[in-house]
Every structure is written in structure tokens, then in C-alpha cells.
């Protein structure tokens, strides 16, 4: 169920139609990818933006997870966690739709800004790369917060107290104690966020503009719009390769292994 489709995908990607309509084997689908700048540009863009989104999510999630596990009074802990979890049970589509209503030219934020006299006329905030990144960060946030919360819970408070008593300042505590301890959680969170961002179709499609084409959209176009399944398979396989590669590099860099990360 899992392996067979991937093999079929690979096989399909090496076949292409010649001019006389026969199917033969070859690399032409992959060559096509490297010859057309728009294809590999989208590919590179998707990869870079995914890494950026992963990084942003981490920066936002880390203080929050720290606050929940270490700073806030224990009786609010459970409540805050439930609050964080709740929105993510709701469909991604609904959440993206909410952002569209907020940000569009006739949207809620613009309405208030104009009322308050900050803007003279409404500004189109939707359909830009920055809003797309905002949307992606928003939709994947949970998958970063939860693993970090669970590793920080196992961090012994006395370690931080000891460092504090020995005169460490906030930053050295952060970089020498908290982050090293949280690395497994950070890595697993980053992998999940990265995968979700890379494979996301909805958010870039609805929130990104005409210029912010996502690679999954290219795949969709090849499959559904131009019915070039072989080309689409080649793209799909490239995406699979890219995601496995980056996850592998990430694991190697932080010396973690997949099995440990999953648990």
C-alpha cells in the first residue's frame, strides 16, 4: 500500500511519449525539469521558503513552549495547552479562509485600519509572499509547539537554578541548557513542519499570489490541467527526493535518528 505507489511513481516518471505516440523509457521528463527555468525555480523557491517557514515557526514556538512549561503558574498549564490544540483540530481550509477574510482588500483588518485613519484606502494584503509565509507558519505551528513542550517538561528546573546561581545570564542559559536539552523536540518538530510546508497545496494556492507558485501546484497542474502524468510523476519524485534529502541532512547535522525522533 505504501511502497507500490512510490515504485509506480518512479517507473512512470521515466516513461514519456514520443512524437509518434509510443511510450519509451528515458530521462526526458527530468531533462525537461532542468531545461525549463520556471520548473526548477519554483522547486528551489519552495525549498527555501519551506526552510524559512520552519525556522520562523521554531523562533515563535520556542518561547511559547518555554512559557507554558516553565513560567506560567501550573494551574493554567493544562488550560493553555488545550487552547493551543483546539484551533488545529479545525480544518486547514477553514483556517486559511479565516485569514483570507481578515487580510483581503475588503477584509476586516483593512476595514479597521481605514476607520482608524491609518490608511487612506484599503490595501491588498493577501496574495503576497509574506502573507503566504504567515499562513504556512500559522497552519503548522502546533507541530512545533507540542514536541518542544514535551521535551521541556523533562528538563529539570534545578539545572536552570544552578546555572542562575552560578551567575549565568539569560542568554547563556538559553543556549547552553535549554536548547541543547530541547534538541530532540526541536528536530522532530522541524521535520514535521518542513514536510507539511513542502507538501502543502492549499495555503500557497489560496493565499499566495500569481508569482508565488508552489511546487505542489506545478504537480497538480501537470496531473489535472495538462494531463501529463509522466511529467507530473517526475516532479513528484523530485519532491519526494528533496524532502527525504533535507530531512536526512537535518538528522545528520543534529546527530539524531528517525526512530528516536518519532518517539
Amino acid at each position: 500500500m505504501i511502497v507500490l505507489p512510490q515504485i509506480d511513481l518512479l517507473v512512470m516518471s521515466f516513461r514519456f511519449e514520443t512524437d509518434d505516440g509510443k511510450m519509451i523509457w528515458g530521462f526526458s521528463n527530468y531533462l525537461q525539469f532542468f531545461e525549463e527555468p520556471i520548473y526548477w525555480l519554483t522547486f528551489v523557491r519552495t525549498a527555501i521558503y519551506s526552510i524559512l517557514v520552519t525556522f520562523l515557526t521554531l523562533v515563535i514556538a520556542l518561547p511559547l513552549a518555554f512559557y507554558i512549561t516553565k513560567v506560567v503558574a501550573p494551574k493554567f498549564q493544562g488550560f493553555l495547552l488545550v487552547l493551543i490544540l483546539l484551533p488545529f483540530w479545525v480544518s486547514e481550509l477553514v483556517r486559511v479562509y479565516g485569514w483570507m477574510i481578515l487580510l483581503r482588500e475588503s477584509g476586516v483588518i483593512n476595514h479597521f485600519l481605514v476607520k482608524l485613519g491609518i490608511f487612506q484606502r484599503p490595501v491588498e494584503m493577501l496574495y503576497q509572499d509574506s502573507t503566504m509565509i504567515l499562513g504556512l507558519v500559522y497552519t503548522t505551528m502546533l507541530f512545533m509547539v507540542v514536541p518542544i513542550v514535551s521535551v521541556l517538561e523533562s528538563l529539570d528546573n534545578s539545572l536552570i537554578e544552578a546555572a542562575y546561581d552560578l551567575g549565568a545570564n539569560m542568554w547563556s542559559i538559553l543556549f547552553k541548557i535549554i536548547i541543547p536539552h530541547a534538541t530532540p523536540g526541536i528536530v522532530s518538530g522541524s521535520i514535521v513542519v518542513f514536510m507539511l510546508t513542502l507538501g502543502n497545496y492549499l495555503t500557497p494556492n489560496l493565499m499566495g499570489g500569481k508569482n508565488s507558485l508552489w511546487f505542489t501546484e506545478q504537480i497538480y497542474n501537470q496531473f489535472i490541467a495538462s494531463f501529463n502524468w509522466n511529467q507530473g510523476s517526475a516532479f513528484g519524485f523530485l519532491l519526494l527526493l528533496l524532502s527525504s534529502l533535507i530531512v536526512w541532512v537535518g538528522l545528520k547535522l543534529t546527530r539524531q535518528n528517525l526512530k528516536k525522533v518519532v518517539q
Binding site: L198, G199, Y201, I219, G236, V247, V262
Partner: peptide, 19 residues
């Protein structure tokens, strides 16, 4: 068994369609 976790959903969709 863990593989589907690291395969993007879109890829899963098209490969199952192909198969």
C-alpha cells in the same frame, strides 16, 4: 510503516492515483 509520515500528502495522492 513510518514512511507515510515523511511522504507529503500530495505525493501520496498522486502515487496512489497512478498505481
Amino acid at each position: 510503516m513510518l514512511a507515510p509520515l515523511v511522504i507529503p500528502g500530495v505525493i501520496l495522492g498522486i502515487s496512489i492515483l497512478l498505481l
